[in-house]
């Protein structure tokens, strides 16, 4: 594996091996060892052309625990925001000797453009591209689900996961639908019809407009963030009505199955898609998702950057 661009081109066995590696790395981090020499001397660039503090610091922590040198190249104050082309940025990173570029970008396909171009030779990790995919988020979500509900197993066979909210604009939803179904889980998308893409019928998931009818049967409820700007774009009448049909509040949580969990990729709109009681409840694994994010991203960097000299043909 040279790049991580999408869940679509990740095989089930590659996905399981990343989760297994993350599992061992989490055990290392749990213990006394906080830093591993694994990627000493390697340079990892966080190229964040779109604001996302949590994803960036998660990748940064992962890289640093593996002793890589981390360079943060973020939109604010960098040339990316001054209209420099992706090509020029990539060639700059190449000139700096980046072994891997972790890219967050508002354009769908930006990570793939970077990987397919001849502009740079390092590994590319997609840390979220437009409304396309966010593979590391899906991997950390699958890791969290497996840890809670399928400890000791390889995959998620037999579980049912509801993904609730703005599926249309969500890269987290796209990656999770592909990964969770690949790992054997049944996925139900719950959203207003306006926030589901045309073509969703081709996805490995079923669709429901009725949250209440779905909630008693699922093992995992994964809430998606509703962007403020959707309010003004005719997707639903107003926040109150959205909350009434698709928000997860304490009342709805009561009908959840024994042992089921609540997830959210963050940042949350408390009171809109999720109520404070739910977010802070015992079912919520939201802060744990953040912790697991670091282990999963360590695993991704480990898998991509070991043997990289082999793939680059310099051996």
């Amino acid at each position: 594996m040279r790049h991580l661009l999408s869940i679509e081109d990740l095989s089930k066995s590659d996905a399981v091996s990343i989760l297994d590696t993350a599992h061992e790395l989490a055990r290392v981090s749990d213990g006394a060892v906080k830093k591993l020499p694994t990627l000493r001397g390697r340079t990892i660039v966080n190229l964040f052309a779109e604001d996302s503090t949590r994803t960036r610091i998660s990748f940064e922590a992962a890289a640093k625990r593996l002793s890589a040198d981390v360079i943060n190249f973020s939109a604010k104050g960098s040339s990316v925001s001054k209209g420099e082309s992706l090509k020029d940025t990539a060639m700059t990173l190449q000139a700096m000797g980046a072994d891997a570029v972790v890219i967050r970008h508002s354009a769908s396909g930006a990570a793939q453009r970077l990987a397919d171009s001849q502009w740079m030779s390092g590994s590319v990790v997609n840390a979220g591209d437009g409304t396309h995919e966010h593979p590391s988020q899906a991997l950390l979500d699958a890791f969290t689900i497996r840890k809670h509900l399928r400890a000791g197993a390889h995959d998620l066979e037999g579980l049912t996961v509801a993904i609730v909210g703005d599926v249309l604009h969500s890269r987290v939803a796209r990656s999770n639908v592909l990964l969770l179904s690949k790992l054997g889980a049944k996925v139900i998308l719950v959203a207003p019809p306006t926030l589901l893409p045309v073509g969703v019928e081709s996805w490995p998931a079923t669709v429901s407009y009725d949250f209440d009818s779905v909630i008693p049967f699922v093992d995992v409820v994964m809430m998606l963030r509703v962007q403020q700007e959707r309010m003004s774009d005719l997707y639903f009448p107003n926040a109150r009505e959205y909350s009434r049909y698709f928000g997860l509040n304490a009342d709805r949580m009561k009908s959840m199955k024994q042992g089921s969990i609540v997830m959210h990729p963050g940042p949350m709109n408390r009171g809109l898609e999720i109520s404070a009681e739910v977010a802070d409840s015992a079912r919520s694994v939201i802060t744990e998702q953040v912790t697991n994010g670091v282990s999963v991203r360590m695993a991704i960097l480990y898998v991509l950057l070991t043997g990289s000299a082999l793939e680059a043909g310099s051996n």
Binding site: E24, V28, G31, P37, L66, T306, A309, L310
Partner: peptide, 21 residues
């Protein structure tokens, strides 16, 4: 004691599964 993460030849070898420590 798994030593995979401490090897000095990681750049040159295909990624190895990490074993439990």
């Amino acid at each position: 004691l798994d030593i995979t993460l401490f090897r000095d030849d990681l750049r040159l070898r295909a990624p190895k599964a990490i074993m439990p420590t």
